[in-house]
Nucleic acid binder design. Sequence first.
DNA 1: GTCAGATATTGTCGAAATTACAATTATTTG
DNA 2: CAAATAATTGTAATTTCGACAATATCTGAC
Lengths: 230, 230
Amino acid sequence: MDYTTNYAAAKHLVAVDCIVFGFDNEDLKILLVRRPIEPQKGDWSLMGGFVQQGESLDDASKRVLYTLTGLTDVYLEQLYTFGDVHRDPVDRVISVAYYALIKINDYDREIVRRNGAQWFKVSNYPRLIFDHDQMVQTAISKLRRKCRTQPIGFELLPEKFTIPQLQSLYEAILMQPLDKRNFRKKILSMNLLDKLDEKDKENSKKGAYLYRFNREKYETLTSNGFSFEI
Amino acid sequence: MDYTTNYAAAKHLVAVDCIVFGFDNEDLKILLVRRPIEPQKGDWSLMGGFVQQGESLDDASKRVLYTLTGLTDVYLEQLYTFGDVHRDPVDRVISVAYYALIKINDYDREIVRRNGAQWFKVSNYPRLIFDHDQMVQTAISKLRRKCRTQPIGFELLPEKFTIPQLQSLYEAILMQPLDKRNFRKKILSMNLLDKLDEKDKENSKKGAYLYRFNREKYETLTSNGFSFEI
DNA sequence: GTCAGATATTGTCGAAATTACAATTATTTG
DNA sequence: CAAATAATTGTAATTTCGACAATATCTGAC
């Protein structure tokens, strides 16, 4: 910041809003809440909260996410800051949007229920308050771009997952079908997955082998110039 | 934003800081100013200013850039919001960083001189106040990533430019030499440049043909599924 | 006016990556 | 044991990428 203008300093309300993504082996979803106060009480919205004195933006986003899901230590990244003067029709509020990638069954269902939260497909979710729809679209774009060059998709899957599960995750994010043989070839050729001796039999009669993402391998390869690419 | 927490609202100083990039046919550069007030008066810093009541973030960044360079209508994009509590040792200030790409000879030299501004190579610039160094590094990373998939490099070149000029811009941003034949082949194969009948003779005896980026062609191609890639 | 110097411009070939495409395997259930 | 379901595997054609060097054009010096 700087003091090089002739303008007097002005203080602002600053909020964080969280786009929480999950994947249910079928669709990419976002977690929405019903706004508990006026104006627009009861309308669907992102989960948010004001940044406190002595609280960093990252800490505020973690707090908001914890309040909603009971989760800590999840993938959480700053997305964009929305600062139009009238984005909130009542007060002028600058909002820093964050997006989180969570394993959809890991959150505390009780806390979520208490918050009136609900999962919606990103392909079909209700009208949101203010500019929250723009936030969601920005987040989807970013996720779609980023998942191609960074191994962040795994944040949306359980620890152990199958190749077809991983493929359908990518298909849901990218909104396009992928070739089974080519997908498997590519992902396995990167040598980032450890094949386990277990099979998942929930989704097929034959059963599919489970794999685990090996972050250490990823970091070793990356430091040697490797770059992830789907 | 939301009111769903038990915390009382707190207001914050919000600033914008601008990383201004230029290219002098040789090096990628940033424009820095000397901080005019205490603390750390006289130290090098990014140009910044506080966000006013009734002023959007985008407008604030445009104002700061205009104050520094006299320019309007330049490429200006939000980068990241820096919100650590003690990033400014005196006051708690949340800063939204923007980066600008300008044609290095287009700015008003008088205004720049009055601001005590100076261009520095991104490969060698002085220590900056607060977390401004982190801002610059974040901006360079973003530029390096983005210039490969979006035609933003042209913002740093004059209206008319030669292929070797364009190549040395990319070499400066990416910090790696590129093959002349392959570069020319690739860029021309995209059909985004109009070849002019003029030559630039400043930089060589033979002279190099001038080209112009054709934004309409780019948009047509893009809407047909084309994607820019260096 | 000729030569040296400097940069612009052009093409080919082998390697690597990408794409398209279909049969077989393993298991469960009726 | 037949049918149904999803997982798993390979190959060939195409395209893209990367490496690599000779020629063209102009200026300025002599």
